[in-house]
């Protein structure tokens, strides 16, 4: 009995101190790890939210880039960090939905190593062509690939990138095969389409928007099931190609190491929901064709799980094997 009481007291004390910790949180600067180089898609998202978090929490929020190894280095560092709320991680579709389907040994696991805070941003990808290419519509593209399988170049930012998988999903739904041409990132792939090096590319909107405005690249369709609210006149692949099910998006999310106290997670979630609803934040993400998130952690995890299963099937069907 005495033992039980003691345990109760002890757990109460732990609980109280956790409470107190959360009430005071943050008392020192917070680091947000980004598993990619500065200036990229994930980095920009992290920097937009870090600026707002800093204003609202009254503590410095530092973005730390730990690039390398397909995002493995930074994500592993996030998994191993102390779960005290002072190290967070921004990751994207690649780490948790795509990599598990593609790579055999991944040093981290979403549900084993991380607490999910919220979805930060989500954006469609774009199927776009060079304006001078004879291919000027999704039916054109499917017809051309049917006539000559494995010859129509499809530029993407890399093998086993989410863009590559979206392209394979599209090809599979249309019953065709494209010639996959990987580049070292979104901007070079966008320029390759603008220069006519490849007739077609699967790109993040932010990577090709400038080329579209300059009249070098023509957007054909978005890869999501719903149209983008910023670019309402671009049809979806489902509409333009009469293709069922194709619904690929590229998102970023905020995570914390497993075991971060619940009160801290709740506080961060509440702050993030408020930040992601701010008009200027929405406007900044909208520039790159993205919508802001703010979903509950449970919904976000369910979404990632769903996507991971879908991409696993695509990877197996298209036989994408980097190893």
């Amino acid at each position: 009995m005495r033992v039980v009481a003691g345990l109760l007291c002890a757990s109460l004390a732990v609980f109280c101190s956790a409470q107190a910790q959360a009430q005071n949180y943050p008392t020192k600067p917070i680091r947000i790890l980004v598993p990619y180089a500065p200036g990229g898609f994930v980095d920009v998202a992290a920097r937009i939210i870090s600026q707002k978090l800093q204003e609202r929490l009254g503590q410095q929020v530092i973005v730390e880039n730990r690039s390398g190894g397909n995002g493995f280095i930074g994500t592993t560092a996030g998994a191993k960090a102390a779960p005290d709320g002072y190290t967070l991680l921004t990751a994207h579709t690649g780490e948790f939905a795509v990599s598990p389907a593609v790579f055999k040994d991944i040093p981290f696991d979403l549900e084993r190593d991380f607490e999910t805070i919220t979805l930060v941003s989500i954006a469609p990808m774009l199927v776009a062509v060079n304006v001078k290419s004879p291919i000027q519509s999704i039916p054109d593209l499917i017809a051309a690939a049917k006539a000559k399988p494995n010859t129509i170049g499809m530029g993407t930012p890399g093998t086993a990138s989410i863009n590559h998988l979206a392209g394979e999903w599209f090809a599979d739904a249309a019953g065709v095969k494209f010639l996959h041409v990987p580049y070292k990132g979104g901007a070079p792939a966008g320029v390759a389409v603008a220069a006519g090096e490849v007739p077609m590319g699967i790109m993040a909107i932010s990577s090709v928007l400038a080329q579209i405005q300059a009249g070098r690249v023509k957007p054909l369709a978005v890869t999501t099931a719903k149209r983008s609210p910023q670019f309402k006149d671009w049809p979806t692949l489902q509409e333009a190609g009469n293709l069922k099910d194709v619904d690929a998006s590229i998102w970023t999310g905020l995570f914390a190491p497993k075991g971060t106290p619940k009160p801290i997670l709740d506080k961060l979630h509440a702050e993030m929901v408020a930040i992601l609803a701010m008009p200027d934040v929405r406007e900044k993400f909208a520039q790159g064709g993205a919508e802001t998130g703010g979903t509950s952690a449970a919904d976000f995890v369910a979404m990632i799980r769903r996507e991971a299963a879908t991409y696993k099937a695509i990877v197996e069907k298209a036989n994408i094997k980097p190893e």
Binding site: P38, R47, A187, S206, A214, E283, G288
Partner: peptide, 19 residues
């Protein structure tokens, strides 16, 4: 330069021909 492009994007400017 990639970082400078990032800085512009955070400021809400899409670098490119239209900029």
């Amino acid at each position: 330069m990639a970082l400078m492009i990032g800085a512009l994007m955070i400021q809400g400017i899409q670098p490119g021909p239209q900029a």
